[in-house]
Design a protein around this nucleic acid. Sequence first.
RNA 1: CGGGGCGUGGCUCAGCCUGGCUAGAGCGCGUGGUUCGGGUCCACGAUGUCGUAGGUUCAAAUCCUAUCGCCCCGACCA
Length: 587
Amino acid sequence: MRYSKALIPTLREDPADAEVVSHKLMIRGGYIRKVAAGIYDYLPLALRVFRKIEMIVREEMDATGALELLLPIIMPAELWQESGRWDFYGKELLRVKDRADHDFCVGPTHEEVITDLARREIKSYRDLPKNLYQIQTKFRDEVRPRFGVMRGREFIMKDAYSFDVDVEASKKTYQIMYDAYRRIFKRCGLDFRPVEAATGAIGGTLSHEFHVIASSGEDAIFFCDKCEYASNVEKTRLAKVGQLQKMNEELKQAKPDGKYVEVSTPGKKTIEEVALFLKVKSSELVKTLIYKATAEKKEPVFVAVLLKGDHELVDAKLTNALFDQGIVDTRDIVLELAGESEVKALTGADVGFAGPIGIKAKVLADASVYGDERFVVGANKTDAHLVGVSWADCNIIAFADVRRARQGDRCPECSSGSLLEKRGIEVGQVFHLGTKYSEKMKAVYLDEAGKDNFMVMGCYGIGISRTAAAAIEQNHDDKGIIWPVQIAPYHIQLITMGVDEKTREVAENIYYELEEAGVQVLFDDRDERPGVKFADADLIGVPYQAIIGKKAMAEGKIEFKVRKTGERSMVELPDIIDRLKKELGEK
RNA sequence: CGGGGCGUGGCUCAGCCUGGCUAGAGCGCGUGGUUCGGGUCCACGAUGUCGUAGGUUCAAAUCCUAUCGCCCCGACCA
């Protein structure tokens, strides 16, 4: 491609509304333009990058035997009503009406349509397994779109849905997808990490997210420095299997001894104030968080959660705990901290003095509260706390794992390692769905015995556009983008210095030969000053540059520059072609 | 949805507090010249319903109200 004929509107200054590097660089490099909040034009350069990623995804998906198809973007409300998500999905689902006033929605994901297709066309165990995927534009009316293409409302996604005869077969498919994902992100040249993930409202039992490690990532992830354990903060386990069970057994036998005393703590409401006032560490305090859990169309339930003073709570973990304890009967709940008046009603005290003893709510305790030590809690009385309280005094109905992990916490898997915290950008996810959708939508097949069975499903997504953004977050410097070759819009950028006929001619020939050799080359043939060309090349981020100027002309060679390292060398044309072929073949 | 902020040529922004000449700068863009290994220099030029609507005023980019859009923090979220 000749630069003079291309559409690459680079900008000298950062756009005012961009926050993260990938967003800034994609705008400045002429990759994308904003049309509305979270909605972008993908200019030729961006499209080329997306296509590269898609190609890798296709190759790896096809290699597993998955079948590509294309589902509608707009779908009828009926299907979503059938799965129950027309009501549950909320405002993120963009709803539209057709001329006959029928309800439709713009697809944010495609479980419904695909399950509908499967139940109509897959009838027998002989037709299974099937894994169907598409690469398509999705729309989610995000509450807060941000960071450009990283969290857009409209985005390109690869989504796959698998159908198997039973859970065992389905888990095998899950593993195959998991492995394929590892290959995909490796081939994209990314530093990534698969982590255990919470399954959330989408349901299901088993899930991993694939995170590109980047400081600008929106998710906190933890991983063990010794073993393979890695998980999203939403899911990071802190109590070992069995440990909670043991605590809860013990809880049944527990006898309160009441060896605590009330102390006056006038006006000391926060953990810091109380700790300072009583001259104890914040970890010696136990805070009582009063949560209000509201399920759709139900009365809110209030729960008091006990947590060490220096710990934080994870909503997703609390939701699971509430569900496991039977306090709520669905995971589709809204969790919020109780309001001032509600706290007063439950504790009889001002906010800041809530405690487990005498509170009018069920008390759930984080596993970290278990132990021999005595601690300080609120007295449910304004300006007072209780000192020397043991967990047995606290009317706890159950211990649960609800706190947020911290760097340095013991690994729940191997027990010998400690957890490291990093930030990640979620570029892919694999879900084992089970029969959630097949049951709701009656997707059944006949087994060998002629009996009906629900198909067991899995779903697997990859954010194509987000992966491109993540790649930039991970590969850039102060001058611009540095694409991994495999997903770069072009392999090499050919730059002419000077405007004399001779240089031009030489460059034209090299351009021709590179193209002949199948190299994707962006030929900067513009009548611009060298500085402009260099700056644009560095910004756009094509991994290699070939410079034809005085130096090259004098030696009869080509100046070859590696964008990432800045390293320059004089080489012959065939060597460049060989090197690129090798790079592309290797990875 | 709660809190904060911003809407002025294509882009980045000044002007607004304290209302008053033809509304500015830099970049970009066009023409001519100059220069040519890291965003040359010079000259000339084009480009604005000051987000929109209403109000106050002799007079509004500037003050008031409403509205729309956008950004940030939080809540939320495959």
